Amino acid sequence: MTSPWYKEAWPHVELKRDQNAKDKFENRAGGFRFSTSVGGRATGEGGDRIVADDPHNMSEVKSDAKRKEVLDWWDNTMQTRLNDPKTGAFVVVMQRGHQQDLSGHILEKSGADYVHLCLPARYEGNKFHTVLGFDDPRTEEGELLWPERFDEVTLSAIEESFSSKSEAAGQLQQRPSPAGGAIFKLNWFKSYTKLPKFYRIVEHWDTAQKANTTSAYSCGQIWAEAHNGYYLLDVIRKRMEYPELKRSIQTRYALNRPDVVVIEDKSSGISVIQDLQESTTVPVVAWSVTGGDKENRAKAVADTIESGNVWLPESAEWLDVFLDEIEHFPGSKFKDQVDVMTQAIEYFKRRGGLTEGRDMS
């Protein structure tokens, strides 16, 4: 504001002589710009424009706890800081680091109230328009955003410098996972329309502790093993209180008649296992997961999927949600469907192959 070019453009704007602090600048007309950090001092401050610039620390955005701190700060502190909610505006400028980072959170929760401008380093065919009249001028797939500064050689070197494709996709392409998937590529999965003879059918469950709107889902999947791999037949994913959860497991068992019902031996699953074993004839198996966290367990079965041994239906009402989580994992908002899938594949591999089975044709 004290530079010659600024004074030439806005000659009437001058700073107060006693308001030239690092975190707050005030001009002679009473306008000001106040700066704070995520979670920092905001009491008593408000504005006509509230701008969040890179609210996430990219080294911490994968942490659920650290990421939630930013989302809570935005929802519970900043939303009341506009001087006039009818005329004021929020502006968020950031790179993507997770499907449920602040941009993802805003687009999911109140995206219709925002203008979304996304400018990937390499054009991917998505046109974005703004109320300011700006359109991304690129038309060719892969066309560079700023070739005068980031030409092909420079951009390729930057892409290679990242520790993972997920990091490059988030910070350069503004996508929280590489195209087609991070750990799992969508084109690895095979598609079926007819069912072969199955050696065994297994119902897998990962049960959640609570059923409120922010908790994880309880997830059940019906898997079958055939001579050419593992088939996903059905998925139920729902927030359920204990009585409904128990009924759902029994209903699915009666409908699909699997050889066993495998339930992860933790959380509400402990009670479900005990209850079903004591009061029903459902063939329940208590399952203890091994192999570290969800991401490491997913990596452990990735080669099975890459080899073309996992089959999904060509169409199903649950398929789009399932594939979306698969594609964005481990940056997906929820991870329950991936975790049940990895447990199912691991179960089959631990139990060994069979040679005779059931004809589902």
Rank of each mutant, 00 (worst) to 15 (best):
Q173M: 14
F189T: 03
M94T: 12
R247E: 15
F150P: 00
L233H: 03
K185Y: 06
L195N: 01
E264H: 05
P137K: 05
H116T: 05
V51Q: 07
Q19L: 03
Q95H: 13
T36F: 02
Q173L: 12
W223F: 15
D324I: 01
A300W: 02
D135C: 12
T130I: 04
V262F: 04
R257P: 03
V262I: 06
I106D: 03
P4E: 10
T2Q: 12
S191N: 07
V131R: 12
K238L: 11
L172E: 05
A112I: 10
E143V: 06
P196G: 04
T80A: 12
R200V: 03
T342R: 13
H204E: 05
E45W: 15
T304M: 11
D135T: 14
L255H: 12
E225C: 10
V91L: 11
G88T: 01
K194F: 09
E167N: 13
H129T: 13
P11N: 08
L144N: 04
I345R: 05
I249E: 02
L245K: 04
I273E: 05
F90L: 01
P85I: 08
L145S: 09
P243S: 07
E327I: 06
N309T: 10
K333F: 07
T342I: 06
D324H: 09
E325T: 02
G269S: 07
K127N: 10
Y253A: 08
A302D: 06
E26C: 08
S177E: 09
M240S: 02
P147M: 10
I106W: 07
S3A: 13
F134P: 00
G353C: 04
E26H: 00
E124P: 00
D303I: 08
V262Q: 02
P283E: 04
L172W: 07
R138S: 09
G47K: 07
G39T: 06
D336Q: 08
W74I: 00
G104K: 06
K197C: 09
Y231N: 06
V262C: 12
T213C: 00
R33T: 08
T139N: 11
Y123L: 05
G46M: 07
S332W: 11
F322T: 02
A302Y: 01
D275C: 00
D303K: 15
K7G: 11
S103Q: 06
S271G: 14
F134E: 12
A42G: 11
E167H: 14
T290C: 04
F189H: 08
D18A: 07
